[in-house]
C-alpha cells in the first residue's frame, strides 16, 4: 500500500504540484487530455515496462500508428460537468488509478483506485468518481468512503467499449478534487452494443 501523508505533509503541498504545468490557476481539461495522451504515447514507445509486464505489443504499435480516438465524447463532457462541475483539478495529488495498458477483452478490465488520506473524521476522502471517455455510459461508478473505511481504496472490473482514456476524480472533506487518468488500449470492445 502507498504511504500515508500526515497532516503536516499535506498542508505543505501546493495546490497544483505538477512541475510541467505552466498555469496552475486553471487547468483546461482538453489540454490535459491531449497532454496525457501524448505522454502515454511517448512512454508506450520508449518504455517496455508496462502494467502487464510485457513489451509494447503489435496492437499497441498499431494503435499508435493509427491515432486512438482520444477526444472525449460529448456525453462524457456532460457527465463530467454534471458531476465534477467547475472544480479545479489537482494533478499528482495522491490519487492513483491502475488499469492494464492493454485489455484484450473490454468486457472485463480490472481497475484499482487508491487515495492517500489520513481518513480521519476531519480529513478524509468522501467519494471517487470513475469516468470513461468513450463508453456509451460515461459515468462508470461513484464510490463513497467514510472514516470507517480506513482506506480510500477500491478494486473492481469495468467495461471499455474501445481504446480510450479512463479518468478518476477523488473528492476530499476539504472539497479538494484530485484527478488521475490512464489510457487503455482495448482489443475486443465490451459495452454490448449491436
Amino acid at each position: 500500500m502507498t504511504a500515508r501523508l500526515g497532516p503536516a505533509d499535506r498542508s505543505e503541498k501546493p495546490i497544483v504540484t505538477s512541475a510541467t504545468r505552466q498555469s496552475p490557476q486553471r487547468i483546461d481539461r482538453r489540454t490535459l487530455l491531449a497532454a496525457s495522451a501524448a505522454a502515454a504515447v511517448t512512454s508506450a514507445l520508449t518504455s517496455g515496462d508496462t502494467f502487464a509486464g510485457g513489451v509494447v505489443s503489435d496492437r499497441a504499435a498499431a494503435a499508435l500508428a493509427e491515432p486512438a480516438p482520444l477526444t472525449p465524447t460529448p456525453q462524457f463532457e456532460k457527465a463530467f460537468t454534471d458531476i465534477v462541475g467547475k472544480a479545479t483539478l489537482v494533478e499528482d495529488g495522491g490519487l492513483s488509478l491502475e488499469l492494464p495498458e492493454e485489455a484484450e477483452n473490454g468486457n472485463i478490465v480490472p481497475y484499482r483506485i487508491g487515495v492517500e488520506s489520513p481518513m480521519t473524521a476531519e480529513d478524509h476522502v468522501t467519494r471517487v468518481h470513475l469516468f470513461s471517455t468513450q463508453n456509451p455510459q460515461a459515468h462508470v461508478a461513484t464510490f463513497h468512503f467514510t472514516p470507517l473505511s480506513g482506506q480510500a481504496a477500491v478494486q473492481g472490473r469495468m467495461r471499455l467499449a474501445k481504446t480510450q482514456e479512463v479518468i478518476a476524480v477523488a473528492v476530499t472533506t476539504a472539497n479538494t478534487h484530485l484527478v488521475a487518468r490512464r489510457i487503455v488500449y482495448v482489443g475486443i470492445g465490451g459495452c454490448g452494443e449491436g
Binding site: N107, I108, V109, S132, N135, P136, Q137, A138, H139, V140, A141, T142, F143, H144, S149, G150, Q151, A153, V154, Q155, G156, R157, M158, R159, G190, C191, G192
Partner: peptide, 16 residues
C-alpha cells in the same frame, strides 16, 4: 458504490 452499465457482469468490489 453507485454502479452503471459500465461495470462488468458479476460485479466484484474490494474495499476496506
Amino acid at each position: 458504490a453507485e454502479l452503471s452499465s459500465g461495470i462488468s457482469a458479476n460485479p466484484f468490489l474490494a474495499f476496506h
